[in-house]
Design a protein around this nucleic acid. Structure first.
Lengths: 193, 193
DNA sequence: TGCTGGATAGAGCGATCGTTCTAGAGCTGG
DNA sequence: CCAGCTCTAGAACGATCGCTCTATCCAGCA
């Protein structure tokens, strides 16, 4: 069943999530996933008869939940919603630097590569992730007393901005875009009370 | 030399720019570029002895300038900087919908896929594009009377937000993320005067 | 007319892609 | 003790990848 602590299936999902996050969907090979997960090709296809796409969907869902947990924790660390979002940006910036600017958003790269097939499972998983993160932020804003419509729209822009700032930070290899985006988002939120 | 109006080299660059924009760098093949450009493999390697990476760099630089022109035009269409940025977002949203949600930012996909090689020419071209766009926005803000430091930082967040909102709009197949991001950016800019 | 060099054309190279397939290892219930 | 299962292991297939190579075409010039 499982070798040491984690099952083979879990190792495959985690490895795939990291690789897809760093090099995208097309850029990541099934054999590379197997090697990184200390599994064999047979194991991968045993657990994921759907092939590469099925592995990627599981990987994206894993990255989704992982990021959602970080997001919730950062949002709860501060009472003021603006400060909480800024803390979020700081956290992302630190993690990004620590990874050597490679571990960005777990879904962006895969999402952009698979825009061709509109109804693809990967597309659906990415869209679901974004929607979930937006709801998490909207919930925080609602609890802070914002109007429902404002909270939802603002949450969307918060996610979009963090997303874009993360990409910019990766490309320029600097924490600055994320940090200033965090400050600006905090300032924007402050105008709603 | 040239068949009808454009030279073979130009057709290759334009085709490569579109393909890279839509499916990323790894997802686009040299042979596909040649076919799309109505050129042959021999012509591609004749004009770009550097191979796939050289073609991609030229394509990204082309997309960079193309987007910069659109950006400048949109920014000049309105006097108020906030309204100008909002007009920008509206323009991007319309173009995105018209393309069937496929023609997003010309550099994001390629940038994310090639983060591995830090010093790659592709990376450099993408970073230069982002920097140039930021300068364009900063220039507009400066002309509107903002302080230099504020203008530059704000311009960075504007580009990041537009970038992120464009991705979100593509994934969710909706203009809404771009439109509300434009409104929020306008509101943010308004707090600086 | 023959030469030259830029441009076009595509066959073919080794490598790698995703996938399929068969064979065996390790455990469990009867 | 073995039948029957999940899981592991990797060889092999056809397709496609980026790239190299040779052959041909054709305008401009002597």
């Amino acid at each position: 069943m499982q070798t040491s602590a984690t099952s083979t299936r879990d190792r495959i999902v985690v490895a795939a999530a990291r690789l897809v996050q760093r090099q995208g969907y097309v850029g990541t090979g099934i054999k590379q996933i197997a090697k990184e997960a200390d599994a064999t090709l047979g194991s991968v296809y045993h657990f994921f008869p759907g092939g590469k796409e099925a592995v990627a969907v599981a990987a994206i869902q894993y990255g989704d939940e992982e990021f959602a947990a970080i997001l919730r924790e950062a949002l709860d660390s501060e009472d003021d919603p603006g400060a909480a979002i800024e803390a979020c940006a700081r956290l992302l910036a630190g993690a990004l630097r620590a990874s050597g600017w490679t571990d960005g958003c777990p879904v962006t790269a895969a999402a952009l590569e698979t825009l061709g097939d509109a109804g693809s499972q990967i597309q659906r998983a990415c869209a679901a992730a974004l929607r979930g993160w937006q709801d998490t932020v909207a919930d925080k804003l609602l609890r802070s007393g914002l109007a429902a419509a404002d909270a939802h729209e603002l949450a969307g822009t918060v996610i979009s901005t963090l997303e874009g700032a993360e990409v910019t930070a990766q490309v320029t290899r600097s924490e600055a875009p994320l940090l200033t985006a965090g400050r600006h988002l905090s300032r924007l939120v402050a105008t709603y009370r």
